[in-house]
Design a protein around this nucleic acid. Sequence first.
DNA 1: CCGTATCCGATCCGATACTG
DNA 2: CAGTATCGGATCGGATACGG
Lengths: 136, 136
Amino acid sequence: MKIRDDYTCPLEIVHDIIKGKWKTIILYQLKDGSRGLSELEREIEGITQKMLLEQLRELTEFGLVEKKSYDGYPLRVEYSLTERRGRKMIEAITIMQMIGVDYMLEKGMTDALLNKGILSGEEIERLMTEQGYKNV
Amino acid sequence: MKIRDDYTCPLEIVHDIIKGKWKTIILYQLKDGSRGLSELEREIEGITQKMLLEQLRELTEFGLVEKKSYDGYPLRVEYSLTERRGRKMIEAITIMQMIGVDYMLEKGMTDALLNKGILSGEEIERLMTEQGYKNV
DNA sequence: CCGTATCCGATCCGATACTG
DNA sequence: CAGTATCGGATCGGATACGG
């Protein structure tokens, strides 16, 4: 991606930073520590190597992700969140994920939440009662 | 936009919620109170009526924005943030805006920050010194 | 003032093949 | 294991015209 230099407000940059289908998912995957390319490819369901590299490059350009290469064989590369902006973005993504969870509870999409271990059955039960969402 | 019903993780929904060039800007514009369509059109530089309506509809479908219509002449419609999800999203957007501001400071794009009244000259001076960014 | 419809170039993103 | 190149369908988003 060509980074513009004529942004007129911070939210325009925000858009460029988070746009794309995979950015938030990649960042979230990095929140527990650095990862190699193939690890990410394995952990993120459905992503292709091309998209992964493309989005990682953009995230790096914006200073949210850091890349370290180690020569030798096999090649080793590590991607990780930057302290300054990457960690900060995780704060925002965490809030947004809560909104996503809330949406899924409202629409009764509880299976995915259970399967991915995001919430336990008890937590789902409690939250839905709390919010007045009907079980479907 | 057709809302899917087969999301497998909350971050997929997050993506649908925030994607599009104008969503965060529209939400941010609503943070200080409800707005009519033409007000938003006037306040958001560069947006077309078509995009505005499209994005407002999507934000409404996801429960971040609420729409109230009042019959009569002239027609009056008010868009506002929902307490439950709209306000929550502003928390995330605020964090992301900080990242955008930081990026602009690093790249020396201080004019836009001054012109929009986002930061004062003194604040810019202080932050740049604090972060070790060089004046350009 | 508010909303819909259409056309069309730009961009996104998945598939696939290939290199060090 | 890590990364590049290309192609083509789908989607996005701006311009513009029209309707309630």
